[in-house]
Structures are given as C-alpha cells and as structure tokens.
Nucleic acid binder design. Structure first.
Lengths: 109, 109
DNA sequence: TTCAATAGTTCGATAATCTTGAACTACCGA
DNA sequence: TCGGTAGTTCAAGATTATCGAACTATTGAA
C-alpha cells in the first residue's frame, strides 16, 4: 500500500497558497483543464502539458494538492485528480471562478 | 532626473503575473493597504510592513509595478503608489475584487 | 550654494526554491 | 512471476529571493 495523499481542510487553506499555486502557467493550465472536464489522472491527455517530465508534473500536482486546489485519489495504478471547486468557493467566494474566466482572455505577454 | 517608471499597458498584463505578484504575503498586504486608503509612498506607514528592509520593499514594489498592479509616480523625493483597480477590473473582471475580499477571512494557515 | 537629511534604487553575495534525470515503488494483467 | 504502466522520491544544477552596503535624487535649512 502506498502512502495516502494528505489534503488540507478547506479552512486551513490560505489565499496566498492558492494564488501561488495558480501563478504558475503549467499549474493554471492543469486547473483550467480540470475545471473544464471531469476528474482525470496525471497522464490523462487532458490533465497536463504532455511534454513536461513526469517528475515535474508530479511536483506541480503536489503543489496544487497541498494548496487545497485539487483532491487526489488513487485508482489502482493511477491517480485521479479533481478540482475542489465548491469547497473553495465557499471559503473564497468568486476567486477561482473569476480567475478561470479571466484565464481565457489571457492571450498576450 | 531619475529614470522614469515603466508601466505595462493594461492589455499587456498577464493573469499569471498578477497572481504571482499577489501570492507573496508582503505584496498582498501592500495591495490591501493601497486598496483601503488612498495612494501613498513606500515609507508611508500605511504602505508596507515597517520592519522590512528598504531594498526588499523596493523590490516588492517593482514586482507589483511590472505585474501591472500598481502605478508609481515620483513626487519630489518620494514615490506615490496607487492601485490600478479599475483598469485591472476591466481586463480581469472580479479577480482583484474577490481576492481583496477573500484576504480578510484569510486568518488560518 | 553648500550641506545634511530623507526616500528610494542598485549591486552583490548568500539563502531558499524550482526543474529534471535517474532510480525506485506500487499496481495491474498475462 | 514477470513486464509494463503510473507516479514518487532523491539529488544536483539552475533560478530566484532576501537584505546589507553603497549610491543617486530631491528637499530644506544655514
């Protein structure tokens, strides 16, 4: 048996850690994909930019998990990740939603 | 004459850079204070945590400026900083407002 | 005009953090 | 039990942050 994932309680999630997690282009992209579709594993074509090394992906998912943004569950050999949308929206109303909406028009720079 | 400040056009501001700038506790605090009161200089008691070294403060204001969050203007010997609220809200509707609101209930960690 | 004080910037070195290849663990199916 | 797949951990090199010290600009007074 593998070590289980640790998820912070929603009340222990800090705004800074959420913003920090979302400030990285790769992690923002992951969150956008998770928000669009259903939960999916790390290697799922929808989850993360494909050309990124596994260890880097693993690290980014860990940051997202520890920031309280995603929930990870083992399903056999893979890990299924899902966005903790509704919990987060209760704690920080509108924050995730407005960021996700804004991330669409974020073409320049 | 001192080198003038460079501010990005609002359309060149990226969501990542905004989130990155706000992910730091010191910078979030600065933005909160600027949002609360009027524009003020770096050494203004309202602007930044007082115990922080000048060079570090200067760095944080630079990050905020380059991220497009604040506008800085020289007034004689001091620099007056102000939040680019309305511009940013046009580009990323609700993002700054919801973050500022959320930052109040952000007690735990 | 000269001088001291104030406000902030720049530089450089140390400290902390991120990225990634390599090795490893866990689980599934044949 | 063996091979393949999915993901984690470790360690080292590359980035980035922090902060003291030296510097620049501006103001106000003598």
């Amino acid at each position: 048996m593998q070590r289980p994932f640790v998820h912070p309680a929603v009340d222990d999630v800090s705004l800074e850690s959420v913003l920090y997690a979302l400030a990285d282009p790769t992690r923002l992209e992951i969150v956008k994909r998770l928000a669009g579709g259903a939960a999916c594993g790390m290697n799922c074509s929808m989850a993360a930019p494909a050309d990124l090394p596994k260890s880097t992906q693993s690290h980014h998912f860990q940051v997202l998990r520890e920031a309280g943004l995603i929930r990870s569950e083992r399903r056999g050999t893979e890990v299924v990740n899902s966005l903790r949308c509704s919990e987060l929206d209760k704690r920080f109303p509108g924050v995730i939603a407005s960021i996700l909406k804004a991330s669409d028009k974020n073409k320049k720079k």
